[in-house]
Simulated assay, not measured.
Amino acid sequence: MLALARKVNESIMLGNDIEITLLEIKGDQVKIGISAPKSVPIYRKEIYLQIQEENKQAAGQEIDVEALKNAFGGKGKK
């Protein structure tokens, strides 16, 4: 892990198009700003881990095709 010291209003760059700026320090909290292309997803780590776990669970589930047909009122192709 790379550890950098920054003062308020100083930034670091990740690659050519992601900038992380230290905005404010209050007590034990640090507020940062992230400038990145909209195509780059940005999540808090706890949310990211939750998404990953839900994706793993969804990938392991079998799909009940008949239940889906009934839910959407369709009878399928004949």
Rank of each mutant, 00 (worst) to 15 (best):
L22A: 10
S11Q: 09
I32C: 02
E54D: 14
N55V: 10
G74S: 09
N70H: 09
N16G: 13
A59D: 02
L23Q: 14
A71N: 12
D64Q: 02
N16V: 01
A5M: 06
I20P: 02
N70I: 05
Q61W: 01
E10F: 11
M13R: 15
T21S: 08
N9T: 00
D28P: 05
G74A: 15
I25N: 02
K56E: 08
G60Y: 01
V40C: 11
K56N: 04
G15P: 04
A59Q: 13
A59R: 12
Q61N: 08
L14W: 05
V8P: 11
G33P: 05
I34T: 01
G60W: 03
K7L: 12
K45H: 12
I34S: 04
D64S: 09
R6I: 00
T21C: 11
Y43M: 07
Q61G: 01
K38Q: 11
K77L: 08
Q57E: 11
L23C: 07
L2H: 06
Q52F: 14
L22K: 14
V30P: 01
A3P: 00
E19W: 02
A5E: 04
K69R: 15
I51G: 00
Q50I: 00
I32S: 03
N55W: 08
K56L: 09
K31Y: 07
K31E: 05
A3N: 06
V30T: 12
K38L: 13
K31M: 03
I25F: 01
R6V: 09
M13H: 10
D64I: 05
I20L: 07
P41Q: 12
A36H: 12
A58N: 09
G76Q: 05
K77Q: 09
Q52R: 14
L68I: 05
G27I: 01
K69P: 05
K26L: 02
G73C: 13
N9G: 06
Y48S: 09
G73N: 01
R44V: 04
A59F: 05
A3C: 01
Y43E: 00
T21L: 13
Q29N: 10
Y48F: 13
D28W: 00
K56Y: 14
K31W: 06
A36D: 06
V8I: 06
S11E: 08
D28M: 03
G60C: 01
K77D: 07
G33D: 02
T21R: 06
I20T: 03
L68F: 02
E46P: 13
K7M: 03
E10L: 10
E46A: 08
P37I: 04
D64A: 10
G27Q: 03
A5T: 06
I12T: 03
Q57C: 02
G27L: 02
A36F: 02
K56S: 14
R6P: 00
L22D: 06
V8R: 09
P37T: 04
E54A: 15
L14E: 10
